[in-house]
């Protein structure tokens, strides 16, 4: 079977105030990326973005600020080199200053998901020492165990992102 080859970039949107992340939606991210590519590489860079079926925001987690971008395979490096120049995203009338941090480049969305589950588990481990009291700690330990056991399944993925929210409160 022949398919259109593409590259999935798993990016993390870093902001100063994490509550701003909830304002994000995929259209705003798409517009910011398009805008920056046009500014950096002009018409030549913007041309590959016209394949609407290839250039997409596949997934956006507004709680953790994780976004999957899909780029055509033959020119993803050109498009990726524009991503560091994004300084703000305009969404729902607010200007959110942020930066993109690319975590992983994968050929399929499945490898990206596997990486993301591992990454989220790692994040939980990093946050564990910052807990305020013992109950919170237990809760997170439970969450880590759960998502480690169910690795590769969809529930684990959701659980990981949910527990991360719990902890920030």
């Amino acid at each position: 079977m022949v398919r259109i080859k593409s590259r999935h970039l798993l990016c993390e949107i870093n902001v100063t105030d994490r509550n701003c992340l909830l304002l994000l939606d995929d259209r705003a991210v798409l517009a910011a990326v398009k805008d920056t590519v046009l500014r950096m590489h002009g018409d030549y860079g913007a041309a590959p973005l016209c394949f609407l079926c290839v250039f997409l925001v596949k997934y956006l987690n507004a709680h953790t600020g994780i976004v999957f971008l899909r780029f055509p395979k033959n020119c993803y490096k050109l498009l990726w080199s524009a991503l560091p120049f994004i300084t703000s995203i305009e969404s729902r009338g607010h200007k959110i200053s942020c930066f993109f941090n690319c975590l992983h480049v994968g050929g399929t969305i499945r490898t990206c998901q596997k990486f993301l589950i591992r990454y989220n588990t790692q994040q939980l481990h990093r946050m564990l020492p910052k807990c305020k009291n013992e109950e919170e700690k237990q809760e997170i330990r439970q969450a880590i165990l759960n998502c480690s056991l169910l690795r590769g399944k969809k529930e684990a993925f959701e659980e990981a992102s949910e527990s991360e929210e719990d902890e920030e409160e």
Partner: peptide, 15 residues
Amino acid sequence: RLELRGPHDAANLSL
């Protein structure tokens, strides 16, 4: 802190 970029991004930027 918003002017920092990740190591992979910096490497790709230097292309």
